[in-house]
Design a protein around this nucleic acid. Structure first.
Lengths: 239, 239
DNA sequence: CACCGTAGGCGTACGCCGTACACTCGTCAA
DNA sequence: TTGACGAGTGTACGGCGTACGCCTACGGTG
């Protein structure tokens, strides 16, 4: 009764909807699989269609949820050594995502990276570049890290330029994410230079990136093996 | 008319259902998102419920599809150097999965790894062990490679022992996947030995695995950076 | 040959989902 | 006073996974 009149219930808005959706996915076992527009509406004491005044559709709801949690990543601390800075930033990302186990899957399932995700990637590339790495090496490093460490896929650099053939939009994106733009540009050049008939149009060489990450890992593991590395020793060394 | 009598249409069976499902997901843009029991049934000229005589439900259908494609990975070639053997095996896995872009996402979404996936993992661990790596290092190496390279998540080693408290079942699994079992056992011991109050029950230390992979990558990238590595040089070296 | 158990395929029905579309109704500017 | 507007409502549609029961052709058995 008090709900049907009087204070009239604080009105919905985008943030309230997103926050409730995140809370729901965090609480429920199935994560975002258990989230439906209908259940979310019920949670907010509202009819399902009311949500559509604040999000265009379920996909935009999911994107908004992702941006909400990715926005919680600490800003990068630009320190002396790039390695430490990147390490800290990636661990911060991991901390943010671990509180929302559904997030990585949703990020990968979305058709395009959200602004907050792009911002995170741009920031990490910025740290690499500030550390003196070439745009080329930074590019491949991002691919190598991409797997589970950042929660984004290699389609990023492929899709972005293709989906925005409008030069105006492209320029705006380049201004907002300068490091991504720089890396994409050098990748395109390297691609053109290395072209030999197997020619992929535009994007970067997927196979090359895959083998790059694979070899960095295998070489590193071999080095540990030859040095007689043990995890108990490593754990002790940390303390 | 010829369908309603005469040859009576070759009857369905599990393989035909799985093959049709894989073909459908390969052909359709949305992959397995576009796949529904109803559409698959229509494809096979059959009513939806007919499929349930051959697969228990949609989840089992997806698991069957995964096993179909993962089964296509070449057997490991046990060569002199473990690194080359692992490299080849992982690239073979990648080749198999690239023909079915929906597969990695489905593998990660399934609640438990399928037998073929377990077999693949067991084979790779076997190569590492045959190369002389300790079970401990092999364990961490698998986690590091896990990201995008193998298409499985770190929950594997956590979930397997917990979901099978029945010692008989556990023994049967250990017999079928000996390398996985060995690695899981040493991980449990190391965990117990390193326990200091933050105690995770049973599984392996997620955070440690994450930082292990992160540091192997960062160290490797740093080494390339200091050596003046360029991708055009690397590409040229390959040819 | 008659019989019948069985297994593969069919039809119907239920409860969920996302969301299009047209509506009400309170608020506020003119 | 009025009229536009925007938040929330109600109804409805098509699609989904799948429970349940039925039909019917087949193979083995008496």
């Amino acid at each position: 009764m008090s709900e049907s009149e009087g204070v009239r219930r604080t009105p919905l808005n985008r943030e309230r909807v997103l926050a409730a959706a995140v809370a729901f996915a965090d609480r429920e076992a199935g994560g975002t699989d258990a989230l439906s527009m209908r259940k979310l509406a019920q949670e907010l004491g509202v009819v399902p269609m009311a949500l559509y005044k604040h999000v265009a559709n379920k996909e935009e709801l999911l994107a908004g949820m992702v941006d909400t949690v990715v926005g919680g990543i600490d800003p990068p601390a630009a320190g002396a050594d790039w390695k430490g800075a990147v390490r800290e930033r990636v661990l911060s990302a991991r901390r943010a995502l671990r509180r929302h186990p559904w997030a990585p899957r949703v990020i990968e399932a979305l058709p395009a990276p959200t602004p907050a995700v792009l911002g995170h990637l741009d920031a990490v590339i910025g740290l690499l570049r500030a550390g003196g790495l070439s745009a080329d090496l930074a590019h491949h490093a991002m691919h190598a890290l991409g797997g589970r460490l950042l929660g984004f896929t290699q389609e990023l650099f492929d899709a972005s330029p293709e989906a925005a053939p409008d030069p105006g939009v492209a320029a705006r994106l380049a201004a907002r994410y300068p490091h991504i733009a720089e890396v994409a540009a050098t990748a395109a050049h390297a691609e053109r230079a290395a072209e030999d008939g197997t020619a992929v149009g535009g994007g970067c060489d997927d196979q090359f990136e895959f083998e790059f990450a694979l070899d960095v890992l295998l070489d590193g593991i071999e080095r540990l093996h030859l040095a007689g590395w043990t995890s108990t020793g490593a754990r002790r060394a940390v303390q």
